[in-house]
Amino acid sequence: MSPRLVPAQRDATGRRDRPLRVTVDGVPADGIAGQTLAGLMLASGRTSWRRAPSGAPRGLFCGIGVCFDCLVTVNGEPDVRACRRRAVDGDEVTTHSRAGHGDADGPGRTAREER
């Protein structure tokens, strides 16, 4: 385990947490109001939530909406940058994978079969 939220009682900002709960692929994850989905997922113990075309796991990278590596589906809206979207109680987050239907094998792959 590594990423985590500073416990409120030790936080110099003196914040007052309002807990909320979202689900990530159906699994509940707890956080507090104001967190981004990326912050919430990190602090609840996930370091990756997306798979690149090769299937390799990806997590937070730029944290400010530039790299699009943290994309998730939120309540059916695809391609939401988790680092920019504030969590709302009850959000249903679905993780993404580009593996299996992209050009995963790179330029060596043969043409798609005729349908």
Binding site: L5, V6, A38
Partner: peptide, 26 residues
């Protein structure tokens, strides 16, 4: 550099300042 756990310095800063989340332990 594409491994989860590698992030930009800006990401660490944004999460610490903006959300009070530490991106890592070590």
């Amino acid at each position: 550099w594409q491994l989860p756990g590698v992030c930009t310095a800006g990401a660490a800063q944004a999460l610490a300042k903006g959300e009070r989340v530490a991106v890592g332990e070590r």
